[in-house]
């Protein structure tokens, strides 16, 4: 191992445990400055526009060190952890391909873990949001999809002759009344073979008619797909360390087909 690499590796391990002083009231400017306080700041650090205050741009390998500091370093056991090595590979690809993240990209999504109320009961569900252009350099966030067990319409009875009988038309379809009053939980079994169930539409319906309310967003993460061969999540880590704020909480190796499938599932394409 050469001397430069040794220094780099020592810095990576030691940085998170660097001690910092606190003011009497508990506020710590060092933490405020080193923490990735805003998603905007994560994007700027990722793109190399700004860097971690502890990493001078003149330092050899500063680009890579800066990117590694955007990971939640607590997920790695050591620099020999295979996961750490994989993170380094991802960072190498970012540098080699000069990967940049732009706010207007259609290739990142927000995942809001919501706490809501449905018919008086507390429910949890997820909303996927993406950035949409409004023209003239203006954008907005839009809800692309909704997921959660509260949208689940898997029938309770998967076997048996649960159906509208072939002669039900002769009795004015009394069976429809029976379906909703006796086995509403099996409604999907009464739908046509290629019935397309869209949870986002269900979400919109429930909110529109005042049945579903969002109390608060319990947890928020963002998923980025801009790095070739990878997909990563960022989450907010509130802690008194120089490795805190919006950090890469997990990352996965994905092939182009898997990446496309993920993006299609967010935008409900080929649903």
């Amino acid at each position: 191992m050469n001397f430069k690499r040794l220094i780099f590796n020592i810095l990576i391990i030691l940085m998170p445990v660097k001690s910092m002083s606190q003011t009497i009231d508990g506020l710590n400017n060092y933490i405020q400055n080193t923490r990735v306080g805003l998603v905007d700041e994560f994007i700027d650090r990722f793109n190399g526009k700004i860097s971690h205050p502890d990493i001078p741009s003149t330092q050899p390998g500063s680009k890579k060190t800066n990117l590694m500091m955007l990971f939640d370093l607590a997920q790695f056991k050591s620099k020999n952890d295979p996961l750490y090595k994989e993170a380094e590979k991802m960072v190498d690809i970012v540098i080699r391909n000069n990967v940049k993240i732009k706010y207007a990209d259609a290739t990142w999504t927000a995942l809001a873990h919501c706490n809501g109320t449905l018919h008086g009961k507390t429910v949890k569900f997820d909303l996927y949001l993406t950035v949409e252009s409004r023209g003239k350099d203006m954008y907005k966030w839009v809800i692309a999809n909704a997921k959660g067990s509260l949208f689940d319409t898997t029938p309770k009875n998967k076997t048996g002759n649960i159906m509208l009988y072939p002669d039900d038309h002769e009795t004015n379809f009394i069976s429809l009344h029976r379906m909703t009053s006796e086995q509403s939980f099996n409604v999907v079994r009464f739908m046509e073979k290629n019935f397309d169930y869209d949870t986002a539409s269900v979400f919109a319906y429930l909110v529109h008619f005042g049945q579903l309310k969002i109390n608060f967003v319990d947890d928020l993460e963002f998923i980025f797909t801009q790095v070739p061969g990878y997909l990563f999540h960022i989450r907010y880590f509130q802690r008194e360390k120089n490795n805190a704020g919006w950090l890469i909480s997990k990352f996965d190796k994905v092939n182009p087909k898997e990446k496309t499938a993920f993006l299609n599932s967010i935008h409900r394409i080929n649903h």
Binding site: D25, L27, N29, V39
Partner: peptide
Amino acid sequence: TSTGIAEIKVSSLQKVSDNMYVCTCQYDQA
């Protein structure tokens, strides 16, 4: 007490309309 003005973090300005922008400021409060 709160973070000093120099340490308040401010996001990029996002245009909402021809005469309106939005941004977010982040700070600590003890």
